[in-house]
């Protein structure tokens, strides 16, 4: 059974245990650093190719970060044969039901939306997570529209977007993020 506690043996025990634990953690961190970075990069790359027309450059290699509206938007320019085909914008909204929502919005060179993909969100499974492209057709209604003459607001707020059933807050946040991407794109002119 446990030993008697003295100041020195208590200090020594804790020191040894924390030292060993940190050694193990350092090792595991080194081991997983590369896979974690790759997984994140792969996620971004898939999102970019999902939302843009065909391209032949490496958009993620030439990303531009822009401070906008109290957050960071990332622009990825896509070209094909040297010709600009579109821009993917990683955008965000803090108004989701579960907080932060990150979207990848792909714009064609003429400013119309080509496609939208969800990068990360914490919305309710079965309700707000229908914003994911794989779970419902919610994002399809944005394809090919020009935010200039398509009001990116849910119909309840006087816009043109059909909200997800029982997820008006998530739908609003989604629109908020898309609008933010468009505004930044227009102002940045990138």
């Amino acid at each position: 059974m446990a030993k008697e506690s003295t100041f020195s043996n208590m200090t020594l025990t804790l020191l040894v245990i924390t030292l060993l634990s940190s050694a193990v953690l350092g090792f595991v961190y080194e081991l997983t650093k590369e896979p974690i970075r790759k997984a994140q990069e792969a996620k971004i790359n898939t999102a970019i190719s999902n939302v843009l027309p065909e391209f032949d450059n490496q958009p993620s290699a030439e990303a531009t970060e822009v401070q906008y509206d109290g957050g960071t938007l990332v622009f990825y320019n896509a070209t094909k044969g040297g010709e600009k085909v579109g821009t993917a914008v990683k955008t965000f909204s803090n108004n989701g039901f579960g907080g932060l929502i990150e979207l990848m919005v792909g714009f064609n060179a003429d400013g119309t939306i080509h496609g939208i993909d969800v990068v990360s969100h914490k919305e309710t499974p079965g309700l707000g997570d229908k914003m994911e492209t794989s779970k419902s057709g919610f994002s399809v209604q944005f394809q090919g529209v020009n935010p200039e003459d398509f009001k990116i607001r849910v119909k309840k707020d006087g816009g043109d977007v059909d909200a997800i059933t029982a997820s008006t807050i998530s739908s609003r946040a989604y629109c908020d993020a898309v609008q933010r991407a468009y505004n930044a794109l227009k102002e940045g002119g990138k």
């Binding site: 059974m1 446990a2 008697e4 208590m10 025990t13 804790l14 953690l25």
Partner: peptide, 29 residues
């Protein structure tokens, strides 16, 4: 058997926290 009785809980928590961080990093990767 090596841990003095009074620092039992902190020692256990450190061990547990280390394994949780391991699984957290592994799942993220």
């Amino acid at each position: 058997g090596l841990i003095p009785a009074k620092v039992r809980i902190p020692s256990f928590i450190v061990v547990i926290a280390a394994f949780v961080t391991v699984i957290d990093l592994a799942m993220a990767g």
